[in-house]
Amino acid sequence: MQRVNMIMAESPGLITICLLGYLLSAECTVFLDHENANKILNRPKRYNSGKLEEFVQGNLERECMEEKCSFEEAREVFENTERTTEFWKQYVDGDQCESNPCLNGGSCKDDINSYECWCPFGFEGKNCELDVTCNIKNGRCEQFCKNSADNKVVCSCTEGYRLAENQKSCEPAVPFPCGRVSVSQTSKLTRAETVFPDVDYVNSTEAETILDNITQSTQSFNDFTRVVGGEDAKPGQFPWQVVLNGKVDAFCGGSIVNEKWIVTAAHCVETGVKITVVAGEHNIEETEHTEQKRNVIRIIPHHNYNAAINKYNHDIALLELDEPLVLNSYVTPICIADKEYTNIFLKFGSGYVSGWGRVFHKGRSALVLQYLRVPLVDRATCLRSTKFTIYNNMFCAGFHEGGRDSCQGDSGGPHVTEVEGTSFLTGIISWGEECAMKGKYGIYTKVSRYVNWIKEKTKLT
């Protein structure tokens, strides 16, 4: 034993070699072989497995989906700052455009905790909710729209109204504003409101030439003092309507412009014939205590009207009353817009006519005020429907199939267009061939041609 100890002390290297040989010859039971080890760690190889990531292109799944990435790591994937920024906006807080917040056709661009709407022409605001041009839906104005110097929408209202708090709607500024039905039992019968379409306001006024200088022999019209197929109006439903009495009662109609003036057809009036105007009328054979009678003290036909040349060209006249009318729910003026808007309103496509005229061709006159909704007829169809001249200051309205029309005794009465609950004068009943005849239409004086003249002559002093 002493000898062994001496050998170990003198030859430590020998001992180490012996131990190493023993270990190498022993069977290893701690580690699995290569094949079995792979069965336990069965993990798919990654895209760049075996390579240094710093030297390969980034992978979106590896960089940002398996674990949260930084902007720089995302930049490695896209290799483009702009594309990385677009991805980053949604990656950080989701897609803010998912709810489609942009209105009126706006395009949404996502941002971090926010979004941006790219608005089409005519709109602005956070969600493109603000109209900035009158060309689109009248700028959301209830009545009139004008573009300011910086191309912003400025709404306005006709006389007797003021802008509401929203700067879009119009509200009454006087007790009985024009064009409004205020009798409670008839307010439910107000005709369907007309909503502004998209309009090209630059070209809204037709490029028409008034044929002022045409000389033409007097034409022989049949029954051209021209509501057939209409309905009984309720008291106060058309408070701007008046009836004219002269040699015979209810020979023509008219509309209240203001307390002192009536507008009617020029062919209705004769110099030297006494005319009485009755406002607030409903049943011409009954006294309903809503009527107001006034005498006409002055007749002003349009300066281009000449019955000797043509009885229905420039067929418009103004009547001055001896005493002002007292405005109330049964006696209310009709609204008159400017030339541009009167023309736009007419193009809405349908209007209402009213009167006490004959209820059928050569038949009896109506006792109760009649009204009828009539569609506008395109000019080409209008011209083809008659052998008589249709001037540019006239328009056609009615039904091709016949059966409904204005008729004798309705002449001078109103053709009105309702705009968001307020009625505007767009025409004056003038003439036609018979009444409600198939293929024939009622012919009306186009008020847009005469609004400046009306307003100039009827100013209240």
Results as ranks from 00 to 15, higher is better:
Asn147Ile: 09
Val257Pro: 00
Cys69Ser: 04
Gly357Cys: 14
Val368Asn: 07
Gly398Asn: 03
Glu433Lys: 08
Ala26Asp: 02
Glu61Thr: 15
Ser169Val: 06
Gly355Phe: 14
Glu433Ile: 05
Thr16Trp: 13
Leu321Val: 06
Gly349Trp: 05
Glu54Thr: 12
Leu163Met: 05
Leu20Asp: 02
Thr342Gln: 03
Lys339Val: 09
Asn38Lys: 14
Glu420Phe: 13
Cys268Ala: 01
Thr85Gln: 09
Gly122Leu: 03
Glu98Asn: 10
Asn222Gln: 10
Ser217Gln: 13
Glu159Gln: 07
Val359Met: 15
Arg373Pro: 11
Thr190Met: 04
Thr422Phe: 03
Leu189Met: 07
Cys141Asp: 00
Asn36His: 10
Lys440His: 14
Phe87Thr: 15
Ile309Trp: 07
Leu211Ala: 13
Asn42Ala: 12
Cys141Phe: 00
Asn203Lys: 11
Glu193Ala: 12
Phe238Thr: 03
Asn104Ser: 03
Asn59Ile: 04
Ser99Gly: 06
Arg191Met: 12
Val202Cys: 05
Gln216Glu: 10
Phe345Ser: 01
Arg358Tyr: 07
Ala317Thr: 03
His415Ala: 02
Ser423Asn: 15
Trp88Met: 15
Phe224Gln: 06
Glu159Met: 07
Glu193Lys: 10
Lys311Ser: 06
Glu73Lys: 07
Glu54Val: 06
Val181Gln: 11
Lys68Ala: 08
Gly351Tyr: 02
Ser169Lys: 08
Ser25Ala: 08
Lys89Arg: 13
Asn166Arg: 02
Phe345Ile: 07
Asn313Ile: 10
Leu52Glu: 15
Pro301Tyr: 10
Leu23Trp: 08
Ser448Cys: 03
Arg358Trp: 07
Ile316Gly: 01
Ala317Phe: 01
Lys260Leu: 09
Val277Trp: 01
Cys141Ile: 00
Tyr341Val: 04
Ser187Lys: 09
Leu425Trp: 00
Arg226Ile: 10
Lys168Ser: 04
Glu76Asn: 15
Val273Lys: 13
Arg62Ile: 04
Leu460Thr: 06
Thr445His: 05
Phe224Ile: 10
Arg294Lys: 03
Tyr305Gln: 02
Gln96Ser: 10
Val56Gln: 14
Glu86Leu: 15
Val228Gly: 05
Trp356His: 08
Cys69Asn: 04
Glu281Cys: 10
Val326Ser: 11
Glu231Gly: 11
Leu14Thr: 04
Ser99His: 06
Ser49Lys: 08
Asn306Cys: 05
Gln241Thr: 13
Lys455Ile: 07
Glu165Val: 13
Ala250Tyr: 06
Glu27Lys: 05
Gly50Lys: 13
Arg162Pro: 01
Phe196Gln: 09
Leu163His: 01
Cys407Glu: 03
Glu53Thr: 10
Lys260Phe: 08
Cys170Ile: 02
His314Asp: 05
Gly179Gln: 01
Gly398Gln: 05
Val199Gly: 11
Thr16Arg: 10
Ser411Ile: 14
Thr215Glu: 06
Asn113Gln: 12
Glu420Gln: 08
Glu142Ser: 11
His361Met: 14
Phe424Gln: 00
Leu376Val: 07
Glu35Tyr: 08
Thr287Asn: 13
Leu24Tyr: 07
Ser430Phe: 04
Trp240His: 02
Gly355Asn: 09
Asp378Arg: 09
Glu231Ser: 08
Val30Ser: 15
Tyr305Leu: 02
Asp150Val: 07
Gln241Val: 09
Glu259Tyr: 04
Val273Gln: 05
Pro239Lys: 00
Cys145Thr: 02
Thr218Gly: 09
Lys438Asn: 07
Ile344His: 11
His303Cys: 04
Ile309Gln: 13
Asn5Tyr: 10
Tyr312Met: 10
Lys347Gln: 14
Gln370Arg: 13
Val174Arg: 09
Ser385Val: 13
Asn5Ala: 14
Ile40Cys: 05
Phe360Glu: 15
Leu41Trp: 13
Lys347Trp: 04
Val263Met: 03
Ile454Met: 06
Ser204Val: 13
Asp410His: 14
Lys339Trp: 07
Thr426Cys: 01
Phe78Pro: 15
Leu23Thr: 03
Asn283Cys: 06
Gly94Lys: 10
Asn36Cys: 04
Lys274Asp: 12
Thr290Gln: 10
Gly272Val: 09
Lys362Met: 09
Ile112Lys: 08
Thr389Asn: 15
Gln408Phe: 14
Lys68Gln: 14
Val377Glu: 02
Tyr341Ala: 07
Gln96Leu: 06
Lys347Thr: 09
Ala192Trp: 11
Ser423Tyr: 15
Glu82Phe: 04
Thr81Gly: 14
Glu124Val: 05
Val353Asn: 02
Tyr341His: 05
Cys117Thr: 01
Arg46Glu: 15
Ala380Glu: 10
Gly50Trp: 06
Phe176Gly: 02
Arg364Gly: 09
Ile300Asp: 02
Val30Gly: 15
Gln241Ser: 06
Trp356Ile: 09
Lys234Trp: 11
Tyr305Thr: 02
Lys247Met: 10
Asn5Leu: 11
Val353Arg: 08
Glu259His: 06
Ser148Thr: 13
His415Val: 03
Val359Ala: 13
Asp338His: 05
Asn147Ala: 10
Asp322Lys: 04
Ala207Trp: 11
Leu318Glu: 00
Gly50Gln: 15
Pro414Phe: 10
His302Tyr: 06
Phe238Pro: 03
Gln2Asp: 07
Phe388Met: 10
Glu116Asn: 10
Val326Gly: 05
Glu193Pro: 12
Gly125Trp: 00
Glu67Ala: 05
Ser107Ala: 11
Gly355Arg: 14
Leu372Trp: 15
Pro197Val: 11
Thr426Asp: 00
Asn245Arg: 11
